[in-house]
Design a protein around this nucleic acid. Sequence first.
DNA 1: TACTAATTTGTAATAATTACAATTTGACAT
DNA 2: ATGTCAAATTGTAATTATTACAAATTAGTA
Lengths: 141, 141
Amino acid sequence: MEKYVKMLREKNLKVTPQRLIILKYLNEHSTHPATDKIYQDLKINNPSLSKTTVYNSLEILEKHGIIQSITISGLEHRYDFRHEMHHHFLCKKCGRIIDIDVVCPNLGKMLECGHNVEEVHGYFKGICKKCMNKEKIKDGS
Amino acid sequence: MEKYVKMLREKNLKVTPQRLIILKYLNEHSTHPATDKIYQDLKINNPSLSKTTVYNSLEILEKHGIIQSITISGLEHRYDFRHEMHHHFLCKKCGRIIDIDVVCPNLGKMLECGHNVEEVHGYFKGICKKCMNKEKIKDGS
DNA sequence: TACTAATTTGTAATAATTACAATTTGACAT
DNA sequence: ATGTCAAATTGTAATTATTACAAATTAGTA
């Protein structure tokens, strides 16, 4: 838990129990949860938690680069503890969002294009390996 | 207009005036408009157009790969006539979405990862060239 | 321990999208 | 041309994610 305190202090953010449990939750759940999922899960042991607080906390944590917001699905924001740069794959069948560990070789070119690039998001969509295999079994092939 | 008829016929989609004007609109407006923008603009000359129709049409056109849905902003879907693969840049200051003509060199690697990749989206975010220059002028530097 | 600005909370409002039932229409066969 | 029917369109109502806001609380500091 001390590690989350340090992350907040480094950005001069106030250390609140709400921010700490959200950070801890995100660090321990690499499923790229949506705001409501985070809220519902944390509310069980923190009944006084407000959903607005979850929204506020996620917003400020993202603004300071501690976490990352993923818009791959188009209908909600999904969140990710930010570590090394990686991309994401959305399975159109099961809805899972899977981490893809490739770096972006376009970054170099992007830096030359005149825009000030602060974020890079690589989204792939299709059918994941697991769902592909299920299909094969159903087909009997 | 005949070109749009052909695109629909090729996918065995019914040719309706609504679909045609939406396709034409998207082809002539490379600003990556949101659903409501398309609706508001087209309604002027097509007062009987329903917003649900715009939603339905965009959905079916996207499903058939004629257009592309862009989720870079996180609060709405933006649409793009699908041509060669390219990426997008969102300016956090002016909100513009700018086409970036780089291809994705990760595609090869993605094809080997076991997932069935159907879509590739590259999103960059930051401050665009134009806004950066405005900043410089304000700073007097 | 007291102060102050920032945070949290709950509720109400907004915005994008979807559900749905009734009406209309495009494509095809006669 | 006309009739048929599945599919598309329309309008309204519902849903879902998110934001606005004001009152109460609290973290950090003096």
